[in-house]
Design a protein around this nucleic acid. Structure first.
Length: 291
DNA sequence: TGATATGTTATCTT
DNA sequence: CAAGATAACATATC
């Protein structure tokens, strides 16, 4: 679930709460979700909290990093203390009145006895410890390539035209590819394509050739969709897993135009929102006005 | 009960 | 080899 806006929501929460804190203890509940040597980060102070696409990097002293990817159902939960949170009850499996719980994979304790829990029901996510000799580029940090951040100056119309014009893949698949654009996932891809009135199934190169105007629209549409997602602190569907570091749901699900709205009337015309598969993923769009 | 789920990546196919 | 498609990861829900 977590895409750029959700991960950015978590990043901001962490920035507010753990900068300057020193790690005192690391407890690993599930080895598969942890990589590296936990001793490397003990007694190290948190200096920065960074985000690259959907990836998080907590930078500690002397170029030590605590890296996190939430994948589908991961959560980073900050607590002043262990145990049961007063007046809280679990309504869904993704709630966490009590911490740690059965889905807690890693527990970070700070010197002031506050905690950061990495919870992940499906356990696809991970926490890694890495160290460097100097400030690393994101490519080095995560051992992978990143497309430009949607809010950076590198994300231009020229660039968008280039990545779309180069391939016959469905346009939705391309804008979700992290090597092409960092941070866009299934929800915000659907919203951006609706905003630009583009059929998500269309081969990307065809859209560039036949509808350059729509591609020009798509650029601000991607930014707007993500910005709105950040504004509403991310999206948490009915049975969704996303929570901020206080365990709170996002609000963006109430402002989505097509994602998750199968069968509802299109907000732009009198068509009906349909759900199909594109590149194996659930895809919501209005067949009447997106073409 | 089998299909499905918001992410990424290894592997298979064309 | 490249591009694109698909399976796999682990668990809950309908």
């Amino acid at each position: 679930m977590p895409e750029l806006p959700e991960v950015e929501t978590v990043r901001r929460g962490l920035e507010k709460n753990i900068i300057g804190k020193k790690i005192s203890k690391v407890k690993i509940y599930r080895k598969k979700n942890f990589e590296g040597n936990k001793k490397d980060i003990i007694n190290k102070k948190v200096e920065k909290v960074l985000r690259y696409g959907k990836y998080l990097a907590i930078e500690l002293e002397e170029f030590h990093f605590l890296l996190v990817h939430l994948k589908m159902t991961g959560q980073l939960l900050y607590r002043e203390e262990k145990g049961i949170k007063k007046d809280e009850e679990n309504e869904s499996v993704y709630d966490s009145a009590k911490l740690p719980n059965k889905y807690t994979r890693v527990e970070i304790q700070f010197h002031d006895d506050t905690f950061l829990f990495f919870n992940d029901l499906r356990a696809f996510g991970w926490v890694k410890v890495k160290k460097f000799n100097k400030e690393p580029l994101p490519e080095k940090l995560f051992d992978r390539e990143f497309g430009p951040e949607p809010f950076s100056k590198d994300f231009t119309f020229k660039y968008l035209k280039k990545i779309l014009g180069n391939t016959r893949r469905a346009i939705k698949t391309v804008i979700m590819d992290q090597k092409d654009i960092a941070g866009v996932g299934n929800i915000y891809a659907a919203e951006a394509l609706f905003c630009a009135r583009i059929d998500p199934r269309r081969p990307a190169n065809k859209v560039v050739k036949e509808d350059p105007k729509k591609v020009k629209q798509l650029l601000p549409c991607i930014k707007k969709a993500l910005k709105k997602g950040i504004k509403y602190s991310g999206s948490t569907a009915e049975n969704g897993s996303f929570r901020d570091i206080d365990g709170e749901r996002g609000e963006m699900q109430n402002h989505l135009k097509v994602y998750g709205r199968e069968g509802e009337e299109c907000p732009a015309c009198d068509g009906e929102i349909k759900k199909i598969k594109v590149g194996g993923r659930g895809t919501y769009f209005c067949p009447k006005c997106q073409n």
